[in-house]
Computed example of a mutant assay.
Amino acid sequence: MRSTSSASGTPEDDGPRLTIRAAAAAARLGVAVPTLRSWERRYGIGPEPRAPGAHRRYSAADMARLEYFCRLVGEGSATADAARAALARTELTRREAAAPGDAEPVETDPSPSPGRARGVARCAMRLDQSGTLEILEQTLSRDGVIAAWETTIEPALLAVGRKWTESQGHYVEVEHLLSWCVTVALHRVRAATPPKPAARRVLLACSPDEWHSLPLEVLAAALRERGVAVSMLGAAVPAEALNDAVGRIDPACVVVWSQTQSTAEPARLPVPGEGSHCRVRAAGPGWLSARPPLAGVLLSPADALDACLCGADNA
């Protein structure tokens, strides 16, 4: 990593710690700079505070925290839980440095959020479709799509997935019921005001052979919630079909989701035609392992929502 130093050759940060700007930090993580700012705003996982008026710079400790966060998300942890775990890990390191051997243990396991997430998982375990839908719809209405996803729906899905793993393949029916209920509840989300008739759409699709479409369902519902027109193509969209769709409707933005490394192929991303102002964004943890590497990956539905809203505003 290239360090940033003053003209005298000494680091611009306090003490011997070397720092980098946001653009370099984003490039190292493989995400967009707005995504870094979104993580700081949503989860408090930005750089440690500097002197008033100083540029935002990322130290080695800041980067270690963000890399740990990205690793947890890539392994399947809920985004909000991964952020809490990364921050707790930093606090533990700080305590150990201040008082070696005397630091109190800090919980760093990104476990599911309590409360409604547990209620959703329990309803699903009983195959209680109506009860599961009721909790999901209440949560979406109360918290909004992104907050409901991060604090309730995603943790519940991860809890059910762990149950399936621990039981050596049992409870597949529970995961299917919960996924179906989540999709139905998301489809029922509507905006207070409809999209403007002349507004360009946001086009959503999973990469070829990628069947994890639920994060895109979350993104579609969050966009509808904000009055943005959406066209959803769903899972495992062939590259040729996605290119044809981009050419037909010339969307303001197209988001291609990849959950796993095996479905992240940069060469199969759509290429807008000459004169198009469509922005193509790679979203999902699969793209972090893409070869060749991609810059500006949107790691979560929340990150993708911010990028889509920016694209819609500029359309």
Rank of each mutant, 00 (worst) to 15 (best):
residue 26 A to N: 10
residue 273 G to H: 14
residue 11 P to F: 08
residue 96 E to K: 13
residue 285 P to S: 00
residue 230 V to T: 08
residue 272 P to H: 09
residue 210 E to Q: 11
residue 142 R to H: 04
residue 52 P to S: 02
residue 197 P to Q: 02
residue 223 L to S: 02
residue 243 N to P: 15
residue 292 P to M: 04
residue 166 E to M: 11
residue 232 M to R: 15
residue 277 H to P: 10
residue 315 A to I: 11
residue 17 R to M: 06
residue 59 S to M: 00
residue 123 C to I: 06
residue 147 A to S: 09
residue 77 S to I: 05
residue 99 A to Q: 12
residue 245 A to L: 05
residue 31 V to G: 01
residue 201 R to L: 06
residue 177 L to Q: 04
residue 262 S to T: 14
residue 19 T to G: 09
residue 2 R to I: 10
residue 95 R to G: 04
residue 64 A to N: 11
residue 148 A to Q: 00
residue 190 R to K: 13
residue 106 V to M: 01
residue 100 P to M: 05
residue 280 V to S: 03
residue 212 H to D: 02
residue 137 E to K: 15
residue 275 G to N: 06
residue 152 T to K: 06
residue 280 V to C: 03
residue 275 G to K: 12
residue 60 A to T: 15
residue 110 P to D: 00
residue 177 L to V: 12
residue 104 E to L: 14
residue 187 H to T: 14
residue 275 G to R: 13
residue 51 A to W: 07
residue 241 A to M: 14
residue 57 R to C: 07
residue 39 W to I: 11
residue 1 M to W: 11
residue 91 E to M: 13
residue 27 A to C: 12
residue 66 L to T: 05
residue 71 R to F: 02
residue 80 A to S: 07
residue 167 S to K: 12
residue 281 R to P: 01
residue 257 W to R: 09
residue 284 G to I: 01
residue 96 E to Y: 07
residue 16 P to C: 09
residue 284 G to W: 00
residue 130 S to F: 10
residue 104 E to D: 13
residue 226 R to D: 01
residue 50 R to H: 06
residue 170 H to Y: 15
residue 275 G to Q: 07
residue 252 A to H: 07
residue 132 T to R: 06
residue 242 L to M: 11
residue 38 S to V: 12
residue 3 S to K: 13
residue 276 S to Q: 10
residue 107 E to H: 13
residue 61 A to C: 11
residue 260 T to I: 14
residue 148 A to P: 04
residue 29 L to P: 08
residue 234 G to H: 03
residue 205 A to Y: 01
residue 130 S to Q: 12
residue 186 L to K: 05
residue 143 D to W: 07
residue 52 P to V: 09
residue 149 W to C: 03
residue 188 R to M: 02
residue 193 T to L: 09
residue 281 R to A: 01
residue 69 F to C: 05
residue 100 P to N: 05
residue 96 E to W: 04
residue 227 G to Q: 03
residue 191 A to W: 03
residue 166 E to Y: 10
residue 124 A to I: 02
residue 274 E to K: 15
residue 65 R to I: 03
residue 150 E to G: 04
residue 293 P to D: 00
residue 37 R to G: 01
residue 146 I to H: 00
residue 147 A to K: 12
residue 127 L to M: 01
residue 218 V to R: 03
